[in-house]
């Protein structure tokens, strides 16, 4: 069977700096993969390159997603093809309600797939159902996208988006960071609800904790822009105990035991008015 995602020798730069230095990774349909690794090792870069962030330039390698040459597609085309990235730092969009944003995204994807758009009433039903997954009331839908959300709420909102858009491949970039235990359970529930034999999930995480709720098929360690070790779920336990030094030689144990859980406010040239 063809892999759902196949990354081969991926190199990517941000400006002149080479961040990814030959990542190879194969994810089959039905699988959950976890990517761990020290701060600054390139995990978010990998996630963003997959989603098509214009700040990164791929210099070498290939990425095939569901038979498409992913690197040849625009960010929206990747979404249409079934890719979803839960951002480490979700972006605030003042002035656009969550409800409107989600319906627009949902219908844009349907339209791109040649399906009829869902009318607002039917969409409301779908939304109600997905709100239950993240254990949220309908009030959240009338708030502007992520604007003024707490760090944890933003992460939960990413999971809501994922639950609505039902991607074939979900990449979650530290969606578990900064979450309280209930929120963590909700995120895990969202991911598990989405699991199907024809879909897959890639979890970027610093914590073994999440992997108690979502059991990965494979665990990879990214360091210095390369995958330096891969293993089964027991690798996560081993990392929790031993840190990254035994793998990287230069790793900073601090970064594993006390990872940053801060959320950068997204700079906007048009700040929200008072």
């Amino acid at each position: 069977m063809m892999a759902l995602l196949e990354i081969v020798d991926l190199h990517a730069n941000a400006g002149d700096a080479e961040i990814l230095r030959g990542v190879s990774l194969t994810v089959d349909a039905g699988e959950v993969h976890a990517i761990m690794g020290p701060n600054g090792s390139g995990k978010s870069t990998l996630a963003q390159v997959l989603a098509g962030h214009p700040a990164y330039r791929v210099t070498r390698g290939t990425v095939t997603f569901a038979g498409h040459d992913l690197l040849d597609m625009e960010p929206e085309e990747r979404a249409h093809a079934g890719l979803f990235l839960a951002f480490q730092y979700p972006v605030e969009i003042p002035g656009v309600t969550n409800a409107y944003f989600l319906r627009t995204a949902y219908n844009a994807i349907r339209k791109a797939r040649g399906l009829d758009e869902l009318d607002p009433m039917d969409f409301l039903d779908l939304l109600e159902d997905r709100l239950r997954v993240v254990e949220w009331g309908p009030e959240i839908m009338e708030r502007a996208v992520n604007a003024g959300f707490s760090g944890g709420e933003k992460k939960r909102n990413e999971i809501l988006q994922m639950a609505v858009l039902e991607p074939t491949l979900a990449v979650l970039d530290e969606t578990d960071s900064g979450l309280d235990i209930d929120a963590l359970r909700i995120v895990a529930k969202g991911v598990n609800a989405l699991r199907r034999p024809d879909r897959a999930t890639v979890l970027v995480t610093h914590y073994q904790r999440l992997l108690n709720y979502i059991v990965p098929d494979r665990v990879h360690v990214l360091s210095g822009g390369r995958i330096v070790k891969s293993g089964g779920k027991e690798l996560a336990h081993e990392l929790e105990e031993r840190g990254y030094e035994w793998l990287t030689g230069t790793g900073d144990a601090e970064s594993v035991t006390a990872p940053a859980a801060s959320y950068a406010a997204t700079a906007s040239p048009v700040p929200a008015a008072p």
Partner: peptide, 11 residues
């Protein structure tokens, strides 16, 4: 913001 929207399929 533009990129975030595009990543959700809005084009």
């Amino acid at each position: 913001q533009r990129y975030y929207m595009r990543s959700r399929g809005i084009a």
